[in-house]
């Protein structure tokens, strides 16, 4: 196949940014304009307008009400708990994602598709069930209840349970972002590095990681977004004790059910603020790797 050579990243050295004007590899302005318009129209219906609706509701009662909703003690407790849970779950899944991607994309073994499918599985489990399985294991009637009683660690209706459920629902993100890209890139770079005398860690840190930085970033961002936004699984396992085991999504539901619509949406806008975190991290990474690009002569991609 002519495509055999498509992704030899080592051959990328001379290519420049894809956005530079390049007549033979881009479309006519009209096509460009049209495609952009269609893409934005799709996003308008399915992304921007829902977001506008959230913000419109949040500010319906004015700025004062907006900020009052955010500094309410129960809301603060929920925000803090959400941050803790995400700060534990995301790094765990990051390490898992890197290990799984390394094993699957850089090596060849039997049963790879099966392993991949097992990694995908948590997505297809309904969130309510994702929470329930841990109740079935660690709850008062659970299969591992004796273990819980013996160690004396509270799992369900406490932080460990919330973390477990969150790790479960966000497990595939980092792995699934990395694997297609790392498979696409092949093993040429790593083989070259190893044959030049690099050990495993050096190869990983200096060759593989820079190659996958964008996929890694997207994986972490998605994982974090979902970890902070997860409702169903957490609602089953949290016990919903106000001010103690309520995460932000649970607090939002409570506010909504109290007819405090604009307060509910106000807390939601904090989660929408994650977009700005994304924006910031991307800018920082781009600036950071701009230096590397100059030093190594490697292209942005």
């Amino acid at each position: 196949m002519a495509l055999e050579a498509v992704h030899m990243p080592a051959a990328d050295a001379t290519s420049a940014s894809p956005r530079a004007p390049r007549p033979v590899t881009t479309e006519s302005p009209l096509v460009k304009w049209l495609l952009t318009a269609v893409a934005l129209a799709f996003l308008a219906f399915f992304l921007f307008l829902p977001l506008v609706a959230v913000f419109a509701e949040a500010f319906r009662n004015g700025l004062d009400a907006y900020f009052a909703a955010l500094v309410e003690p129960d809301a603060l407790a929920a925000i803090w708990l959400t941050l803790i849970v995400a700060a534990i779950s995301v790094p765990l899944n990051l390490v898992f994602g890197l290990a799984a991607a390394w094993a699957i994309a850089k090596h060849d073994f039997k049963g790879k598709s099966l392993l991949l499918t097992l990694i995908d599985l948590p997505f297809s489990v309904s969130p309510v069930i994702a929470g329930l399985v841990f109740v079935l294991l660690f709850g008062a009637q659970g299969y591992l209840q004796p273990l819980v009683a013996w160690t004396g660690i509270k799992i369900v209706f406490a932080i460990p349970g919330i973390v477990l459920a969150t790790v479960f629902v966000t497990l595939p993100f980092v792995a699934r972002e990395l694997i297609p890209l790392m498979q696409e890139q092949g093993t040429g770079d790593e083989e070259a590095a190893v044959s030049l005398g690099a050990n495993g860690w050096q190869t990983f840190w200096r060759v593989t990681l820079p190659n996958v930085k964008w996929a890694l970033l997207y994986g972490v961002l998605l994982c974090n977004a979902r970890a902070m936004g997860e409702f169903g699984a957490v609602s089953v396992i949290s016990g919903k004790i106000r001010g103690f085991t309520n995460t932000m999504p649970l607090q939002i539901e409570i506010l909504y059910n109290e007819y405090a619509f604009s307060a509910a949406f106000a807390v939601s806008t904090l989660l929408a603020g994650l977009a700005f975190v994304t924006l910031g991290i991307k800018a920082v990474l781009e600036a950071r790797y701009a230096g590397d690009i100059a030093a190594t002569g490697r292209g942005r991609h």
Binding site: F48, L51, V54, L221, R226, F231, P249, Y256, L274, K282
Partner: peptide
Amino acid sequence: LVDAAIDLPFALPTAV
């Protein structure tokens, strides 16, 4: 900005 907003469907609690 559009690029950054793509992840938001995950961040928004499903009920919202």
